Simulated scan of single mutants.
Amino acid sequence: MLGISELRLTNLLLAVDDDGIATVTLNRAAKRNALDAETIEELIGVFTALPSSGARAVVLRAEGPHFCAGLDLVEHGRAERTPAEFMRLCLRWHEAFNKIEYAGLPVIAALKGAVVGGGLELASSAHIRVMDETTYFGLPEGQRGLFTGGGATIRVPALIGKARMVDMMLTGRLYSGDEAVAVGLAQYRVRDSEAKALDLARQSARNTPLSNFAVCSAISHMQNMSGLDAAYAEAMVAGIVNTQDAAKDRLDAFARGTAHKIAPD
């Protein structure tokens, strides 16, 4: 496995600040940050390396006015792939997005402009999504003679429900503004999605790494289990996390009454 200093990136930018906040940037603005095969491989490399790099949280952002327009249709049209070749490509997309969702680092997506098709698949693999006033969401595959292949059928219904996803694919319906937040496509709508995403990343990074690992990995795994199995897994994770040495000072502060109070601002 390559470390972050060994990665050779063309379509992504990667920076990690002194607080352990990593910023991963989609860097194909001229293509509306469409995802070609090379970008998918770079995402796999970056999100494989980050968990062991000392990073505490990740901001996922994009250059230009759009977050991501999805599958690079020009590359796809020219490649003339066989069904088996495209299936293997789809599995690489799943690998990339599973690395984001399950690796145990908080990933906050700063959204703007188009978040459509594979761009929505990418965004839905993040743990928190922050949209700005320009953001719109869509799944236009149905109008283009295509079908989703990077996890939309798994993650998008978990956010908005099956019926809304089917509607988006059949009719080309777009979501934006307050409606997008109301249905669950984003958790925050702000003027500056990147500033808000960075603030949320810094908040998340103040948690203990083991707690964040559980929140950003175990919950997703438990959603794939039966209720009985999930209950057992939850108890096991709680047994490990809730007895960690790194939490002792925080528990002592609570006992002394000096801990941060959980109350509305």
Rank of each mutant, 00 (worst) to 15 (best):
R189T: 00
F97Y: 15
K112M: 09
M222C: 12
M236A: 15
R189E: 02
D19Q: 15
P51D: 05
A96S: 05
R92N: 09
L9R: 05
E85M: 06
V190W: 01
A29G: 10
K261V: 15
H260E: 14
S176A: 14
E42D: 06
G177R: 09
G138R: 04
D245N: 12
D192R: 11
V156R: 02
F213G: 00
I21C: 02
P83V: 05
G3M: 11
D192G: 02
A235L: 13
I219Y: 13
Q187H: 11
D18W: 00
F67V: 03
D192F: 06
R202C: 05
D245L: 15
D36Y: 03
D19P: 00
S220F: 14
P83I: 07
Q223S: 14
A49M: 07
V241W: 01
G113N: 09
L198R: 14
E194I: 10
Y136P: 01
K112S: 13
V130T: 07
F97L: 13
E63Q: 14
L71Q: 12
G151I: 12
V58T: 04
G151Q: 05
I219H: 11
M87Q: 11
H66T: 03
D252P: 00
A79G: 02
A126H: 03
H127C: 04
R32P: 00
A230K: 10
L185T: 02
A152F: 12
E95V: 00
K196T: 13
M236D: 15
V59H: 01
A180E: 01
G20V: 03
P209K: 08
A123E: 04
D252N: 12
A126Q: 01
A180M: 03
R81N: 06
